[in-house]
Amino acid sequence: MMACNDQDARLVTLLRVGRLYAPEPREEVDMLIADGRIAALGRDLAVPEGWPVRLVEARDLTAVPAFIDQHVHVTGGGGEGGCVTRCPEITAAEIAAMGIGTVVGVLGTDSISRSPADLLAKVRGLRAEGIAAYMYTGAYRVPPPTLTGDVQRDLAWIPEVIGLGELAISDHRSSQPRQDEIERLVSEVRAGAMLAGKRGICHFHVGDGDRGLEPLRRLLSETEIPADQVIPTHVNRHRELLDEAADYARTFGASIDLTAFEDPGEEGLSAFDAVAVLLERGVPRERITISSDCNGSLPEFDAQGGYVGMRVARNTTLIADWQRLVREEILPLEHALDLIAGNVARVLGLQAHKGRLAVGFDADVTLLDSELQPRRTFVAGRCVYSEG
């Protein structure tokens, strides 16, 4: 297999694979990439002689849409145990090696030593390295920290900002926002997103507090806010919350985001187990997404809320849980892909150009081997990862 070589990157790439899932299985196994987008799909595609074409032969691999991770602490999370517990930043190489082509950066508990400006700088750095990177303005706390001093202006004037998050509810680390504050913030995001032509989601961190999803249930029941504006995450942190999330998704036709916990603990469920439970409970797979929470902190607290220790989340579990869904036949490959590609693109409002392998879409392609392991990742036609 050819190694990534940016010096050899040309305007046109002809990619030849063994199988192609768009995510549905397709007969076409040749892909012509031009100016960062998919220009043609077919068999035995040819390019006129003399064109500056890079040929990539990968007949032993399967092409799928590059994965999308909507919850990444790209600047590092943590800090709950003091400055020494700040998590490290993630690198473009660590992202691309997992077959991930698009990430959304978040701030968490710490929006003091880290800021939306730091996050924007990191997002732009990842973009320069080939990753399709976006960000949420805000953080756990209310009122949310912003780039321009106003949530609507952030959405309207900063291209990389696609929503607000991760706003914390039902968690002792949150600002304990009142219901009217939550409603006002979501309304502000909706208005700003409309002005910017974006989806403008509100990405809610849900802790293990007794209130669970009640603030979001009230939001959707008592206001005109549409369900696709609100995405709760970490809903598999314990069984009662997952049960509530299943009812929430069915009642409101809402999407819910699972976290690929490396160690879900005694009360939590892995993303693999949580998907199986949600499907059994009648939640449409179109309403389920999985994210990594990588480079965020996994803090441990005692019964009084005191900090006792911390680990750093990785994105490897996201891929491992997804692979297991296919291997253990919980979902076929084409349906499992939606949980980390197509569904995520729709949730984020990126479905017009990401999450599928189709003519006119961004050439974000992951090549998998027979064990479903990413071997090569392209973003906008640029090779950003190649094993070996």
Rank of each mutant, 00 (worst) to 15 (best):
G76A: 07
L337G: 00
T233P: 02
V379E: 12
G296V: 00
D243F: 14
M194V: 11
W51E: 08
G149W: 12
G309M: 02
P145F: 06
W322D: 03
A117D: 09
E334I: 13
G81K: 10
A128T: 13
A34W: 10
V344C: 08
L45K: 01
A363I: 00
V104F: 08
R211N: 09
M2Q: 15
D263H: 15
E244C: 03
R37I: 15
P52Q: 15
A245F: 01
F261D: 01
L367K: 02
F252K: 12
F272E: 07
R43Y: 09
P48Y: 13
Q70W: 11
G268F: 14
G149K: 08
A22Q: 07
R43D: 04
V189W: 07
E328I: 05
N236W: 06
V12H: 11
P177Y: 06
G360P: 00
I131K: 02
G207I: 00
L167Y: 11
D69R: 00
R218C: 10
E188D: 15
P284S: 07
G282R: 06
R314Q: 10
I288R: 12
T316H: 09
D293G: 00
R327N: 15
F67L: 08
A66I: 01
G305V: 11
P332D: 12
A22G: 12
F301T: 00
F378A: 10
A34T: 09
P48L: 14
A227S: 15
T317G: 13
D35C: 11
P284D: 09
G200T: 00
E80F: 04
D44M: 13
R43K: 10
E188K: 09
R218T: 06
L269W: 06
A336Q: 08
L258V: 02
Q373F: 12
L147M: 09
A341Q: 03
I112E: 06
T317A: 08
M31W: 03
N5I: 02
H203I: 03
P374S: 13
T377M: 03
L20S: 01
E280W: 13
R218V: 10
N236Y: 09
C83F: 10
G77R: 02
G209K: 03
E183F: 14
G253A: 12
A245M: 00
M31E: 02
E280F: 13
T146V: 11
A303G: 05
R59H: 13
N295Q: 13
G296D: 07
R153V: 08
Q70M: 05
M194E: 15
G42M: 04
E27Q: 09
D110I: 01
I256H: 05
S255A: 07
G282C: 05
R54P: 02
R217A: 08
T13C: 08
K198F: 14
R141I: 07
V103N: 06
